[in-house]
Amino acid sequence: MGSHPKDVEITDAHPKTLLNQKHAEYIINYSKKKDDYEYTMTEHFRMSGIYWGLTALDLLGQLEKLNKDEVIDFVKQCQSSNGGFSPSIGHDPHLLYTLSSIQVLVLLKAIDKVDTEKTVEYISKLQNEDGSFSGDEWGEVDSRFSFCAVASLTLLNRLDTIDVEKAVQFVLQCQNVDGGFGTRPGSESHSGQIYCCLGLLSITKQLHRINSDLLGWWLCERQLPSGGLNGRPEKLPDVCYSWWVLSSLTMLGRLHWINREKMVKFILATQDPESGGFTDRPGDMVDLYHTLFGLAGLSLLGEKSLKKINPVFCMPQYVLDQIGVNVQILSI
């Protein structure tokens, strides 16, 4: 492939090996840094931040380096009286942070520390007549929220509390002519939404209801000459899409449709060798979000020094094995 107008260049100056220890240190130090202003500015997604950090640390085999009790205590304080979880103390509950909280608690084997009955009730009440889910009491609908609801209830082993077929029907309506999925029926296809919709279909074992070849092609065309993946046509590559796209291709049994070697090279180049952590593109600023998705992508691609990741829940596979949760993976 020749030059591409919307790609990045990877040079010899970029890292070529996985800097495991650097990343572990970055995450541990991040959790200790409670600078006033920064802390305030990130509080509205703190629970997801904790999930990203803990999952990444576990993939690196260093989960024990964080104070679990402190985390569990924080999650407990974020449970609202209606059963849902908020991103931080004093904030409003939402399905996005309810899933993050449940993931954190399951990872730390502490799900019994909260009132899960109330959580189940909170989630199931958010299902709408057409099968979709609102993210919270204010009614915004998004296929991401459908995934959050179904994934959360599966981790709690209570998927029976919602109308699963209707939830599936709604997600299928979000599919476009190009094979991809968007936020709502009629919305443009987007790799992040595709991951959520496929994830829901995988959990509910309904992946056979879509055109996997068509979607698989759309997904593998996201790979650019640098090896990186973008989320939509003519967008720049971003390491978080190495997760959304790779996990989707894995569910469809078509991970081998992308160039593995180039993909690994791209992800490794997004590491910051000084601070540790991953960025969206080589040379940018690191954050927890890209650090998890960089590591998770490498794990999917078979990186031996990391624990195996589950493509649907984005949690270490051993955790899901322990609670007996399985997902549908197509094969061709």
């Binding site: 500015m41 509205h44 004093g90 904030h91 409003d92 939402h94 919270d136």
Partner: peptide, 13 residues
Amino acid sequence: LKPEVTTFWNIRK
């Protein structure tokens, strides 16, 4: 300055 804080929009609702 930080319109991503959903809780604050909710308070206004």
